[in-house]
Design a protein around this nucleic acid. Structure first.
Length: 600
DNA sequence: TTAGCCTTAAACAGTC
DNA sequence: TGACTGTTTAAGGCTA
């Protein structure tokens, strides 16, 4: 099958064999699809930056193809020297057939160019591509323009020889497999778009059943990346399909290979590419941030200090007093597990702690970061990096207690939770343990309960919420809006969109939303984003044995009770207090009437 | 400037 | 007797 694309495929195969998988990717993406010749300067700056990128890819791809041809020529020369009789044995008939096929190949190349032009015109009509005024439209060049006839012959020979096996299996030679794997390296599925230039009529492409899709269905029945929850996940579709079979029918009928589908596919490719680009940029940004903080925190002083995220973030003078030795490593990303600290003896001493001064206010108190979310997401980071968690002792103690199945912990168990969850607390135990005890006694939100095992500590969520600074208490509407998920997702969405906008990603711009296709695509992406957020929450569930804080957030309270946004898991109070004794009175002033006695 | 919060340090008492 | 647990006080820094 696919003789034309076979040129790509063969070249790909060679590229892979030569360890040039990346070039293979480029070759497949742009080598023939867009039809730009090698070394050609783009005559049009198509609005979407990806076209320039695609052109570059095409050039690179053609270069790879040439290299492959060159290699092949060299190999043939070598083999020719070794076996001079080899070419002599080739019958004239076979040479004639090759010449005929070569002619057909060139004709198909020409057709491909026409298809490409039509495709781009279609995209342009749909507004998916913008061409700057004053520039010629669609400067597509003949595919083979940059290739000399000899190269074409070599390429063709390579194709014809390499696909003999495929030909014998009866594959359709005239079909062109424009597998949309240009960016599918990260895509979950590779949807094949099979074009048949011969069967196309007036530029309209005939539709073939996607083979890889079919295979995928056979292997994973009822599992399709474009199908979920009874809804077609094709960007902008969302058609309800009762079952998988109906979905397949819908897919083949509504999303056949036409201009619209291919345009959407290209847009999706753009989306994936831009997301990958965005990810790379954000990673780089994070790295820079961490590096920056590292430098900041290591500039002035030599006294060894553990990395204090709070201090670093706030860049207080305490932060600037940290030392390089205190940093076990420069974290690449908080969510990525770090190499376990293999440092020598503890660098934290009471003295050094004192030099740092009191720990600054935890950022969770300022930036509404749910402690459970942060701990869940950065669990490995905290476990391995000697980084002070940016939460108050009270918040950490509460979290430890709430993570326990019984919602109650002994002091020693709280200690263990601290040391288990945070590498930072594996050192200088005397200090922080004292602080833990101090906080347990100081805050009324921590209730000591005598049971069979001895004394355990529980959390009085009401008191805990009271304890929090009511920064937005005067704005009920704002409080209502600060529901945990919303408070969590909104900044992320905003950040994402801002970042997308920064990277000139049109899908998220207001203008692009006017385009139904793009708008639906953006909607689909947002849906995916929400899914990711749900996944994040589910991770929290995993991190918390027994019950997830976030699970407790949503069910009852979240829309009823104004919560302190800092503790988005505030609704835990229901669960937590439910575990208390029935006599538990939240309004009790424990300062006046110690609970210990009451509970005992 | 001030109040409230947080952290650290320390003293003290009770229990095991 | 020492370690652990729990309470309390004080001091200093930070933030709204």
């Amino acid at each position: 099958m696919m003789q034309e694309s076979g040129t790509e495929t063969k070249s790909n195969g060679s590229a892979i064999q030569n360890g040039s998988g990346g070039s293979n990717h480029l070759l497949e993406c742009g080598g023939l699809r867009e039809g730009r010749s090698n070394g050609e300067t783009p005559a049009v700056d198509i609005g979407a930056a990806d076209l320039a990128h695609a052109q570059q890819q095409q050039q690179q791809a053609l270069q790879v193809a040439r290299q492959l041809l060159l290699q092949q020529q060299q190999q043939q020369q070598v083999s020719g020297l070794k076996s001079p009789k080899r070419n002599d044995k080739q019958p004239a008939l076979q040479q004639q057939q090759v010449a005929t096929q070569q002619l057909a190949f060139q004709q198909q190349l020409l057709q491909m160019q026409q298809l490409q032009q039509q495709h781009l015109l279609s995209l342009q009509r749909q507004g998916l591509l913008t061409i700057q005024p004053g520039q010629p439209a669609l400067p597509l060049q003949p595919l083979a323009q940059g290739m000399i006839p000899t190269e074409l012959q070599q390429l063709w020979k390579e194709v014809t020889s390499a696909h003999t096996a495929e030909e014998t299996t009866g594959n359709n030679h005239s079909s062109l497999d424009l597998t949309t794997t240009c960016v599918s390296s990260s895509a979950p599925s590779k949807t094949s778009l099979i074009m048949n230039p011969h069967a196309s009529t007036n530029g309209q492409l005939s539709v073939h059943t996607p083979k890889r899709e079919s295979l995928s269905h056979e292997e994973h029945p009822h599992s399709h990346p474009l199908y979920g929850h009874g809804v077609c996940k094709w960007p902008g579709c969302e058609a309800v399909c009762e079952d998988f079979q109906s979905f397949l029918k819908h897919l083949n009928s509504e999303h056949a290979l036409d201009d619209r589908s291919t345009a959407q596919c290209r847009v999706q490719m753009q989306v994936v590419q831009q997301l990958e680009l965005q990810l790379a940029k954000d990673k780089e940004r994070l790295q820079a941030m961490m590096t920056h903080l590292h430098v900041k925190s290591t500039e002035p002083k030599a006294a060894p200090q553990p990395l204090n995220l709070v201090s670093s973030v706030t860049l207080s003078k305490s932060a600037s007093e940290a030392s390089p030795q205190s940093l076990p490593h420069t974290p690449t990303t908080p969510t990525a597990p770090l190499t376990p600290v293999t440092q020598g003896p503890s660098v934290i001493t009471t003295t050094s702690m004192h030099t740092v001064g009191p720990i600054r206010r935890r950022y969770s108190d300022k930036y509404n970061v749910p402690i459970s979310s942060d701990i869940a997401q950065n669990q490995e980071f905290y476990k391995n990096a000697e980084v002070r968690p940016p939460f108050t002792y009270a918040s950490l103690i509460r979290q430890a207690i709430l993570e326990s199945p019984e919602k109650q912990l002994t002091l020693n168990e709280i200690y263990n939770w601290f040391t288990r969850m945070f590498a930072y607390f594996r050192r200088n135990a005397a200090t922080w343990k004292n602080a833990v005890r101090h906080n347990l006694s100081l805050h009324k939100c921590f209730v000591r309960v005598e049971n069979v095992k001895g004394a355990v500590w529980t959390v009085d969520e009401v008191e805990f919420q009271k304890r929090r600074p009511q920064k937005i208490s005067g704005n009920p509407s704002l409080i209502k809006n600060m529901q945990s998920s919303h408070a969590y997702c909104t900044p992320l969405n905003a950040a994402l969109q801002a970042s997308m906008a920064e990277n000139s990603i049109p899908l998220y711009t207001t203008a692009s939303m006017g385009n139904p296709t793009l708008g639906n695509l953006a909607s689909a992406i947002r849906e995916e984003l929400n899914g990711a957020m749900e996944h994040t929450n589910s991770n929290e569930s995993d991190s918390s044995p027994g019950r997830s804080p976030m699970q407790a957030v949503h069910p009852v309270h979240v829309k009823e009770e104004p919560l302190d946004p800092e503790e988005a898991e505030g609704p835990l109070s229901l669960v937590t207090t439910a575990n208390h004794s029935p006599d538990f009175d939240h309004d009790r002033d424990y300062e006046d009437e110690p609970v210990n006695e009451d509970m005992e």
